[in-house]
Amino acid sequence: MLGSLSTLSLLPFWRGADEESRRLLALKPSTFSLLNYMRIHLPELFPKLERVIFMHDDVVVQRDLTSLWYLDLHGLVMGAVSAQESDDEGSGDGFCVGKTFGDYINFSNPVLTTSPSSYVLQRDQCAWLEGINIYDLQSWRKHNITRKYQLWLKLNRESGFALWPMGSLPPALLAFHGQVLPLNRSWLLSGLGWHMPDPELLQSAAVIHFSGPGKPWLETGHPELQKIWRSHLNHSDELVSSCMVV
């Protein structure tokens, strides 16, 4: 099923890729991996489910996620932690501690203003974070998010990959825009592998995400991050032992 879905809806967007796309592939092969885009078919893969919690494979869960599962999304499609830090408690204003839409998307491209949409994109809007997200699949189906995502993939290909560098997050930012409930930042601590986390945030986070290139299971990983990661391993697990990761 995975293969048929990816072939039907994703593969055509990469056929006939030009020299620039091949250069991007050489620089970051994962951006062309179909598996990175498969989450957009969650409603089709699980037609009987009403909601799912989706996690990356480079995260560690540190506390019970039950309350996240029962969170009221108020009719929106997904819940995600925003890369925004408030200036004052409850002020509603703040600054981005992560990337903005403008960091991912080429706002100078006229496609963004001429393509059919019912929302206005803001260059300085904080992007939401991946790692752990909760999706209301019924609302997803109602708003036809999969189709919107596929449309943005098509528009990017037709523009010569000028809307954004290859990757699965930029089209998701566009397709889910206006349908994201901001989650409390305690649900996710991202960026491990790019920098060392604040000890207090590390302890309080429900999920920690080794999203940077310095993966703790690699020799290039930072020793302190390796120590954090190894503390969560089940050293008696047969697979862990056979992989010789410790």
Rank of each mutant, 00 (worst) to 15 (best):
A175K: 00
R51H: 11
G212K: 06
Q62F: 05
P170I: 00
L188P: 00
L24Q: 14
R123F: 07
G160S: 07
K215V: 07
V245D: 05
P12E: 04
L68W: 02
H235N: 10
S204E: 15
V240S: 11
L218Q: 11
A26E: 15
P216N: 01
N156P: 03
G160T: 07
P29E: 14
Q84A: 08
M78V: 01
A175V: 01
C96L: 06
P171F: 05
S186F: 12
N109H: 15
I40M: 09
N156C: 05
V120K: 12
D72C: 06
G160M: 08
V52S: 06
V240R: 10
Q179E: 15
A162D: 09
L201D: 15
V245L: 09
I105S: 02
L76Q: 14
L27R: 15
E200F: 12
R123G: 02
W152I: 01
A26D: 13
P223V: 05
Q203F: 09
S242N: 13
G214V: 06
H235D: 12
L181M: 14
R157P: 00
F176P: 01
L189N: 07
F13I: 11
W140L: 03
V52T: 09
L27V: 11
L129M: 10
W128K: 01
P47K: 04
R157C: 06
D103Q: 12
S204N: 15
S236Q: 14
K148G: 03
M38Q: 13
P165Q: 14
L34H: 10
L11R: 14
L68C: 03
E219R: 13
Q226F: 03
S30D: 13
I134P: 01
K227E: 10
I53D: 05
S118P: 00
L192A: 02
S139L: 08
W140C: 04
I228E: 09
Q203V: 09
G92V: 01
S204R: 15
W152N: 01
L71Y: 08
L5H: 00
L121P: 00
W69N: 08
D93R: 02
A83F: 07
A17I: 10
T114R: 07
W229F: 04
H143L: 11
G90Y: 01
K28Q: 14
V61N: 01
P199C: 06
L49Y: 12
G214S: 14
D124K: 05
R51P: 02
